[in-house]
Design a binder for these strands. Structure first.
Length: 663
DNA sequence: ATTAGCGCCTTTTTT
DNA sequence: AGGCGCTAAT
C-alpha cells in the first residue's frame, strides 16, 4: 500500500529537525522504516551513520526486523537500532576511561540498587526504600548532581535522600558499576563537557530517529540534543496523548522544548488511523478530550462505523474472568477468529492471575507479555551474577548472590565479617575473601567454604581469558551443579525445575551464538539491558494477556479492558495533579488497541489485600458518550447481547485480516 | 555457633 | 518472587 501524503512528506523531509505527531495506528513504524530506507537508498547516508532509537528492546527488535525485511541484511549492516539505554551503554563503554570507569563496568538492575539504598537508609521497610530510590532516579534523570540537589532540597527527607544519593554514587563508583539511569546520564554529561568527544560522536551518528519521543526524560533529551548538534538532522516521532511514563521521569515538556530549541522545527501530523473503527476512535477522542492539549489532533478512519463498545458490570473478579473467557470462546466461534485476535489488558500485573486460571480451565491457550521479564527470573539472575563477577571482581552485589547461590556454607555471619573487612580496607568482598586476616576470623568450616568459592572464581577468571563465553558458562554450571540445585529446590515440582533449567540453557545457547563476535564482558553488559530473549513463541496462536503499558504499539481485533474501577484504574495513588491525566492517557492507549470490538469491565466488589472492596466504576467510563457505549451485565439483570451490526463486523474482520495478510 | 529451609506477607506501570 | 522470622540440622 502506498504512503499517504503526510507520511510521504515525513519520509522525505531530511533538511533539519522534524517532529512527526503520529496518532495511534497512523502507521508511524512504517514511516520510520521507509525513512531509513530513503536515507540509505536516496539520500546517500551510510547505514552506520544512522541510529534509530526506541524505548523497549521489543520495539528495537521489531524495527530491526522490518528494516531488514525492507532493505535486506547487506544494505543495513552497521545501522544502529537500539534502545536509549543500549546506545548509552555503547558510548559509555567506548568512553569509560574519560568517566573514571573501566571498560568492564557492571550494570546493576533496580533490585540491586534498591538493596544498596536500603542499606544506607536508617529506617527499614520496603516503602521508604522505593521512595528514596525513585527520588534519586528522578534527580538523575533531570541531570542533577548530588551537590546541585543539596541546593534545592525543600525538606528534611529530601536532604537525607540527597545524602544517600551522594553515598550511593560513591558506592557505585567503588563497585565499578552503573545503574540504568547512569547509562544515559554519564554519556550526556561527558558529551556536554567534552567538545572533542562530542564532535566525534556527532560525526559518527549523522542522522537520528527517535520513536516514542513523548517518553523521553530530560537526560535523554539532552543526549539527543548533544548528539545531533547544530545541524539538527533528526526525526522524532511521538504522540503526546500516549505519554504514559511520567512516573519514571518522562517529561512531555520535552516536546514543547523542542519547539523552543529548534525554531525551524517542522511538524507533520499523521491523523488517519488505519486500525480501528470510527466508533472506537470516537470514544478514544472523547476520553482524551478531557486532557489539556499540547498539539491538537483528531484521529479519523475510513474503516466503517463498527459496533458500540460494551461496558460490562461484573459481580466480582472471578465473575469478570469467567465472563471474559466465555466471551472469547463465543466470539472465536462466531467470527471464526484466531485466539491471537483477542487481548486482555489490565492495569497491574497481579490482575493477570485470575484470567490465567480461567483460561486454563477453558483450555484456551494464552501468552503473557509484559509481566516479569526473562532476566528478572531468579535463575537468570543467578547465572548473570556469576558472569558479572567474572567480568568485574569489584561487583559486590553480584558477589553476594553468587556466593550464596547455590548454598555452599557461606552464610550471614561470614558475609558480615567479609563486609566489615572490606569496609575497613575499602576493598571489594572478593578481595576481602582473599585476605588471610579475614580468613583467620572465620570458623574452620566457613573458611574452607570461602576459600573453595574464591578458588572457583579465580579458576574461571582464568578460563574466561581463553575459552569462549558459552563454553565457560556451561562448565561453570557443571562445576556448581546448578541443575541439581534447581532439582533439589523444586523437589515437589520437577516441571518447575525443568523449565528453569531450560531458561538457563536458552541463555547458554544465546551466549554461545554471540560469543564469536563479543567477549564475556560485553555479553554480560548486554544481558543486563535485555528484557527478553528471542521470543520464539511470538507467533503462536494464543490469547494475549498484557499490562496496558506493555500493550502500547500493539493492536487486536478484540480487546477486553478489564478492572475499570476507581482505585485500580485510575490507580488510587495517581488521583492527584498530573497523575490522573496520565491514567487517562493510559485509557486512551487501551481503547486505541482495539480494531473492531472493545469490551470494558468493572466489578461490583473485589478482594484487595484480603478484604472486600466495593469500588465505583472508573470515571473514564463516564467520559464516553452513551451513543457509542452499551452497558451490559449485572445492573440490568441479564447479559444483553449485541445482535446489531454483527454481519458488518464479520465483513470488517475479513477485510482487516486480508489487510494483515497482504502486508 | 552458623547455616538452611519453611511458611508468612505483599505486588502500578519498566530500562 | 523476595523479604522476614522462626525452627531444624550440622
Amino acid at each position: 500500500m502506498k504512503l499517504n501524503p503526510e507520511q510521504q512528506q515525513a519520509v522525505e523531509y531530511i533538511g533539519g529537525a522534524l517532529f512527526v505527531l503520529a496518532g495511534a495506528g497512523s502507521g508511524k513504524t512504517r514511516v520510520i522504516t521507509e525513512k531509513i530506507a530513503y536515507l540509505i537508498t536516496q539520500a546517500g547516508y551510510k547505514p552506520h551513520h544512522i541510529a534509530a532509537i526506541t524505548f523497549t528492546n521489543k520495539a528495537a527488535k521489531e524495527m530491526q526486523e522490518r528494516i531488514s525485511h525492507r532493505l535486506g541484511k547487506n544494505q543495513t549492516r552497521g545501522l544502529i537500532v537500539s534502545t536509549f539505554h543500549a546506545l548509552g551503554m555503547r558510548i559509555l563503554r567506548e568512553e569509560a576511561t574519560n568517566l573514571n570507569y573501566k571498560k568492564n563496568f557492571s550494570i546493576l538492575d533496580s533490585s540491586d540498587s534498591a538493596k544498596l539504598i536500603g542499606e544506607m537508609l536508617a529506617s527499614s521497610g520496603r516503602e521508604p526504600i522505593i521512595k528514596a530510590q525513585h527520588q534519586i532516579s528522578l534527580w538523575k534523570n533531570n541531570l542533577l548532581s548530588p551537590d546541585e540537589v543539596y541546593a534545592i532540597c525543600e525538606n528534611d527527607w529530601q536532604m537525607q535522600t540527597a545524602q544517600i544519593y551522594s553515598r550511593y554514587q560513591a558506592t557505585l563508583q567503588h563497585y565499578q558499576a552503573v545503574d540504568f539511569d547512569d547509562l544515559i546520564r554519564l554519556p550526556a554529561i561527558l558529551l556536554r563537557e567534552n567538545g572533542e568527544i562530542r564532535l566525534k560522536w556527532q560525526n559518527r551518528l549523522r542522522y537520528l530517529l527517535v520513536d516514542e519521543c513523548q517518553d523521553t526524560n530530560a537526560c535523554q533529551y539532552e543526549l539527543l540534543k548533544l548528539l545531533t548538534g547544530l545541524e539538527a538532522k533528526f526525526t522524532v516521532v511521538g504522540d503526546d496523548d500516549q505519554s504514559i511514563y511520567a512516573w519514571r521521569g518522562a517529561d512531555m515538556e520535552n516536546l514543547r522544548r523542542l519547539q523552543q530549541d529548534y525554531p525551524q522545527l517542522k511538524v507533520i501530523k499523521l491523523e488517519q488511523n488505519y486500525r480501528s473503527t470510527a466508533r472506537i476512535l470516537k470514544i478514544a477522542n472523547q476520553v482524551i478530550g478531557n486532557n489539556p492539549k499540547l498539539f491538537p489532533k483528531t484521529l479519523w478512519s475510513n474503516l466503517g462505523e463498527g459496533d458500540a463498545a460494551r461496558i460490562m458490570a461484573c459481580r466480582d473478579e472471578v465473575h469478570e474472568a469467567e465472563f471474559v473467557v466465555q466471551q472469547i470462546a463465543k466470539n472465536k466461534l462466531l467470527y471464526d477468529a484466531n485466539y491471537a485476535d483477542f487481548a486482555i489488558l489490565y492495569r497491574g500485573n497481579h490482575q493477570a492471575r485470575l484470567f490465567e486460571d480461567a483460561l486454563r480451565v477453558a483450555r484456551i491457550p494464552y501468552q503473557i507479555s509484559g509481566g516479569q521479564s526473562f532476566y528478572d527470573k531468579a535463575e537468570i539472575k543467578d547465572v548473570l551474577a556469576y558472569l558479572r563477577l567474572l567480568a568485574n571482581p569489584n561487583d559486590d552485589p553480584a558477589f553476594l548472590r553468587a556466593a550464596t547461590t547455590p548454598k555452599r556454607g557461606i552464610g550471614e555471619t561470614t558475609l558480615g565479617k567479609l563486609n566489615a573487612y572490606a569496609q575497613q580496607h575499602e576493598c571489594s568482598l572478593f578481595e576481602a575473601s582473599g585476605s588471610l586476616n579475614t580468613l583467620a576470623t572465620l570458623s574452620t568450616k566457613s573458611r574452607e567454604s570461602v576459600q573453595q568459592f574464591i578458588a572457583l572464581l579465580r579458576d574461571y577468571q582464568q578460563r574466561a581469558q581463553t575459552d569462549d563465553a558459552g563454553e565457560t558458562v556451561q562448565n561453570l554450571l557443571d562445576d556448581i551443579q546448578y541443575e541439581n540445585y534447581l532439582l533439589e529446590n523444586h523437589a515437589e515440582n520437577p516441571k518447575m525445575a525443568e523449565s528453569r533449567w531450560k531458561n538457563v540453557q536458552d541463555l547458554c545457547t544465546w551466549l554461545a551464538k554471540k560469543s564469536e563476535e563479543r567477549n564475556l564482558v560485553e555479553l554480560t553488559q548486554l544481558i543486563a539491558l535485555m528484557t527478553l530473549l528471542e521470543n520464539k513463541d511470538e507467533e503462536i496462536d494464543a490469547v494475549k494477556l498484557s499490562t496496558l503499558h506493555a500493550s502500547k504499539g500493539l493492536e487486536y481485533p478484540f480487546v477486553y479492558l478489564v478492572g475499570c474501577e476507581e482505585g485500580l484504574f485510575p490507580h488510587a495513588d495517581s488521583v492527584e495533579e498530573h497523575g490522573l491525566e496520565e491514567e487517562r492517557r493510559l485509557m486512551y492507549v487501551g481503547i486505541t488497541r482495539a480494531k473492531q470490538q472493545l469490551t470494558m469491565t468493572h466489578c461490583k466488589k473485589r478482594k484487595r489485600a484480603g478484604t472486600w472492596q466495593y469500588p465505583e466504576p472508573s470515571r473514564f467510563l463516564d467520559e464516553m458518550s452513551s451513543d457509542d457505549v452499551v452497558r451490559i451485565g449485572h445492573t440490568s439483570g441479564e447479559v444483553v447481547s449485541q445482535e446489531k451490526g454483527r454481519k458488518n463486523s464479520r465483513a470488517l474482520l475479513a477485510m482487516l485480516n486480508q489487510k494483515i495478510g497482504g502486508n
